[in-house]
Design a protein around this nucleic acid. Structure first.
Length: 468
DNA sequence: AAAAAAT
C-alpha cells in the first residue's frame, strides 16, 4: 500500500461508525487497523497478526459492523472468543462502536450466565453475536440461535481457537453457517502448525503482519529472577513492596495456586483476589470488575486471564510460574503496556526452568534482563518513607489536641523519660508486624554439601523414571 | 503438562 492512512475517516467507514469513534476519542487508526479495515470492508478474508494491545478488536469490529444491515433482525456477524470474559469485553466494544447505528443489537452468549437473559436478548433478533463455543453450540442445538444468514465470522485469538480442545467446537459451529461467508482471524501469536490449519478456514486471505518496532511496540520492560534462597511467595511480597505499580496481575500455573498465592498476599495486607475458571461466573465477572475500577489492586490468575483482557490500569505483570510455551508468555505480559502506557513484566524462573527461559528469549528475539531480589536496605527505606508519609498526614490532621491531653496523662508513668525516648517507644509499637528496619536477606548461596545432596537425589529420580 | 470451553 503506497498511501499511508491517517484518520479513521480515510478508511471508508460510514458516518455513524465515525461518530461513535469520535465519541470514544479515537482519532487515528493503529497500523493493524489501517491495514485491515479497507480489505474487511470490501468483504475479503483477512488474517491479522499484530502484537498485544495494538487494537485488533477495533480492526475487525469496525468494518464488519459497518457492513451490517440493521433492517434485517438476524445474526449477520459472529465473533468467537476463548474465554467468557473476553466474549463480554468484545461484545461491549462492539456495543460502543455501534451505538449510533439505529436498530443494531449485540448479544454476548457464554457459559455460566442465566439462560433467560440470553433468550430474552436473542428475541430482539441481534445482528451481532459474540460468544464462547460451548454455549453457542448449546443455543444452536436448542434452536434458539439461527446462524443461517451469517455473513461475517471472526476468530479472536485465532491460534487458541484452532488448537486441540477448541477446534472441534469451532468446526461444529462452522457447519451451521452459510458456506459463503467472510472470515477474519486475528491474534498476536500464530505458531506455524496452527498457521497451516488457518488455510482450511480462509479463502484467499489478505495477510497482515505488523512487525513490532520502536514505534508500535508496547513499552514493556521485562526482567527475570532466578528463584534462590527464599520461597516464591516471600519473594513476591518483596518485589511487590519494592515496586511502584497501579494494578498488578500475577500469573500462576494452576487454579489451586491462584487461591494459595491470593491468601499469602492477603496476609501481607494486599488488596488481592484470585481468578480462575473453577469460580462461578458471577464471581469471575465481579472480581474482574473490581480489578478494572480500582477496588482491587492485585489479581492472581491462571491463563484464563492471559489473552485479550484490556485493563489499562495494569502496570505490572508477574509470571509467578513460568509459562510452558512462549505464546502464553507473550499474551500474559501483553496485559500491561496498553493504551500507550508503560508496563513492567517480572518472571520467576526456577533453576530447572532455565531452558524454558532460553526458549522464550529465542522465540521473542529478546534478551530478558536478570534482576536480584530487592535488598533489605531498599525495602527498609521504602517502608520508612511510607511510614513518614503516614506520620505527616497525622501532623496535618486537626484532631491531635485530644492526644496531646493523653500524652500528659502518659507522662507521670514515665517520669524520667524525655519526649524523644517516648517517641522511640511509640514508634516501635506503631511499626507492628512490619518492621521498619528489615533483617538482611538470607544468603542466596546454597552450601556445597546440600548441592551435592540435591544432585544425587535428581540422579536417583531419573534412574527410577527410566526403569518404568 | 495446565487451563479453557455447556450443564
Amino acid at each position: 500500500m503506497s498511501k499511508v492512512e491517517k484518520y479513521f475517516s480515510d478508511l471508508g467507514l460510514k458516518a455513524h461508525i465515525l461518530n461513535a469513534l469520535a465519541d470514544l476519542g479515537y482519532e487515528k487508526p493503529s497500523p493493524i487497523q489501517s491495514a485491515c479495515i479497507p480489505h474487511l470492508l470490501a468483504g475479503r478474508d483477512v488474517l491479522g497478526m499484530a502484537q498485544t494491545g495494538s487494537g485488533k478488536t477495533a480492526a475487525f469490529s469496525l468494518p464488519l459492523l459497518n457492513n451490517i444491515n440493521p433492517e434485517l433482525a438476524v445474526p449477520q456477524m459472529l465473533v468467537l472468543a476463548p474465554t467468557r470474559e473476553l466474549a463480554v469485553q468484545v461484545g461491549d466494544a462492539c456495543t460502543d462502536f455501534a451505538k449510533h447505528i439505529k436498530g443494531v443489537n449485540i448479544v454476548s452468549l457464554y457459559g455460566g450466565q442465566r439462560y433467560d437473559l440470553q433468550l430474552r436478548a436473542l428475541r430482539y433478533g441481534p445482528q451481532v453475536v459474540v460468544g464462547t463455543p460451548g454455549r453457542l453450540l448449546d443455543h444452536l442445538k436448542r434452536g434458539t440461535l439461527n446462524l443461517s444468514k451469517l455473513n461475517g465470522l471472526v476468530l479472536d485469538e485465532a491460534d487458541e481457537m484452532l488448537r486441540m480442545g477448541f477446534i472441534e467446537d469451532v468446526e461444529n459451529i462452522l457447519s451451521k453457517i452459510p458456506a459463503k461467508h467472510q472470515t477474519a482471524l486475528f491474534s498476536a501469536t500464530m505458531p506455524e502448525v496452527i498457521r497451516r490449519i488457518t488455510r482450511r478456514f480462509m479463502n484467499n486471505p489478505y495477510e497482515v503482519r505488523i512487525q513490532s518496532s520502536i514505534k508500535n511496540c508496547p513499552d514493556i520492560s521485562q526482567c527475570y529472577w532466578i528463584v534462590q534462597g527464599i520461597r516464591k511467595n516471600e519473594a513476591l511480597a518483596r518485589f511487590l513492596e519494592a515496586e511502584d505499580f497501579d494494578a498488578a496481575i500475577i500469573f500462576v500455573r494452576t487454579k489451586n495456586a491462584t487461591l494459595e498465592v491470593a491468601e499469602a498476599l492477603e496476609k501481607n495486607g494486599y488488596n488481592s483476589a484470585a481468578l480462575n475458571g473453577d469460580m462461578n461466573q458471577n464471581l469471575r465477572e465481579q472480581t474482574l470488575d473490581r480489578f478494572k475500577n480500582g477496588r482491587l489492586d492485585i489479581l492472581i490468575a491462571t491463563d484464563v486471564a492471559a489473552r485479550g483482557l484490556d485493563v489499562d490500569r495494569i502496570s505490572l505483570v508477574v509470571n509467578y510460574d513460568i509459562p510452558l510455551d512462549y505464546e502464553s508468555y507473550v499474551h500474559r505480559i501483553g496485559r500491561t503496556g496498553r493504551a500507550g502506557r508503560a508496563g513492567r513484566a517480572l518472571l520467576f524462573v526456577e533453576n530447572r526452568e532455565r531452558r524454558l527461559l532460553r526458549n522464550i528469549e529465542r522465540m521473542t528475539k529478546l534478551t530478558i534482563k536478570e534482576v536480584k531480589l530487592p535488598t533489605a536496605e531498599i525495602l527498609s527505606s521504602r517502608r520508612l518513607a511510607k511510614f513518614a508519609d503516614k506520620v505527616q498526614n497525622q501532623l496535618e490532621s486537626n484532631d491531635l489536641n485530644m492526644y496531646r491531653a493523653l500524652l500528659a496523662k502518659l507522662q507521670p508513668a514515665a517520669e524520667e523519660l524525655d519526649m524523644e525516648t517516648l517517641a522511640a517507644a511509640l514508634l516501635k509499637m506503631a511499626q507492628g508486624e512490619r518492621p521498619l528496619i528489615l533483617p538482611q536477606v538470607p544468603n542466596n548461596k546454597v552450601p556445597n554439601n546440600i548441592k551435592r545432596r540435591i544432585l544425587r537425589r535428581n540422579l536417583i529420580d531419573r534412574s527410577r523414571g527410566s526403569r518404568r
